[in-house]
Write a protein that binds this DNA or RNA. Structure first.
Lengths: 224, 224
DNA sequence: ACTTTTATTAATGTATACAATACCAGAACT
DNA sequence: AGTTCTGGTATTGTATACATTAATAAAAGT
């Protein structure tokens, strides 16, 4: 028995969930948009069953909200929500660094992170591309901690933030500072100056969001 | 139009999920136990569809792990996992107190919490009962923060910890100190001494885990 | 005109049936 | 004995059909 081929992404539902995730992150689907099972079933040429599963997977990642007997909508986050998400993300990353300090991080991980940061230096103007790489950087720190719990918690924050950062970046002003800080954090990690790494990381996170007065859209198609 | 009756717990799946949650928390179901859709379908006299949904709800709360094409099992947590869970819980509660400090907490909330703590004083020997009340206390702090995000994150931690606390309480030794601290935290909140509340809370949480007999792979030595 | 009622339609919830896959025990082979 | 086939069974994955509920529109009453 040969192993699964490339297309078998562990069942349809995962594949569909990934596709919808992409649509949310790229902004094709916006907060409040209603997701209709039948529509997607037709679009993907399947029955509603795997679509439902996909919606659940998305709900776990915090991208979709399921309202019993009403349906599934793309979850919206208020300004307050985003502040809390960022705060919690920072806490998790701080904790991750504490955990990293207790381990020997293999050279390969550090190299991987450095490659990532170098790639970010070269991005020129594509917000989505930058947001994706940035996400990978933060995720990389989480993974270095080798803590399933932290990683699990983080996954609930990461994607919603990714879908928002694209919009709310103060692109021009902060990008250069942000890039430099990534390098600094990595250097501290390499030199095992974990307290310093933490300090820079905390500052780094505190500067990410500049609220701009956008409020949460209401959900269309529902009678609230 | 009269509102839904008491039995309509917003669809079967929620009800089933609650029931299974109870079985996990009370220890009837143990980590690693496999959950078979068909079995539960028969037990509840339904088809497999709502059972599946229930499993997903449990997965969101971190009580069950879904492995594609294999099934659902009661999720187990290692000692390291528990340390991380507790650490994150502490962080979230700390953050919650910061948020509380920014609000006017209504008197009714404080009274509610005080009633809870008083009830805890009276519990005599029933670990599960105490663990449940303790859970409500911690949850109460989260709710006072009025942050959906914090509450959402917390729900992923709370139930797994609840299912573990019952087993590993160092009942006699620490219970009195723990009780006192609850009162102290509440008093600080009432007097708007939020920094003090936070400090006590952090200490309260840090004492929770005492890995003493490292030989034991289980969750021994975990209390609060 | 405005609200309430009623019918129609759309969408989710649940049940049943079948398909694909994983699991397991026993046979065949080395 | 141990390993690899092989078949049968258990269990999840998907499809289809129907039931129930929510959203929409039209009709009736005030």
């Amino acid at each position: 028995m040969v192993d699964n081929n490339i297309f078998d992404n562990n069942s349809l539902s995962r594949l569909i969930a990934e596709k919808i995730t992409e649509e949310i992150i790229t902004g094709k689907l916006k907060a409040g948009d209603k997701l209709i099972e039948a529509n997607y079933a037709e679009e993907f040429g399947t029955s509603r069953a795997p679509i439902r599963e996909a919606f659940y997977l998305l709900a776990i990642d915090g991208l979709v909200e399921r309202i019993p007997r009403k349906g599934s909508v793309v979850k919206g986050y208020s300004e307050r929500d985003i502040i809390d998400l960022l705060e919690i993300r920072m806490m998790l990353e701080s904790l991750a660094i504490e955990r990293i300090a207790e381990l020997d991080t293999p050279e390969s991980s550090l190299i991987h992170m450095e490659q990532l940061v170098n790639k970010m230096d070269l991005v020129d103007g594509d917000r989505l591309e930058y947001a994706m790489l940035n996400q990978k950087f933060h995720l990389g720190i989480i993974e270095m901690s080798k803590s399933d719990i932290i990683a699990n918690m983080y996954s609930r924050l990461g994607l919603p933030l990714l879908s928002l950062q694209r919009l709310s970046f103060e692109w021009v002003e902060n990008i250069n500072k942000s890039l430099k800080e990534h390098h600094i954090i990595l250097n501290h990690l390499r030199k095992k100056q974990f307290d310093d790494a933490k300090k820079v990381l905390i500052k780094h996170n505190q500067k990410v969001f500049n609220p701009r007065g956008k409020s949460q859209p209401s959900i269309k198609g529902f009678n609230n």
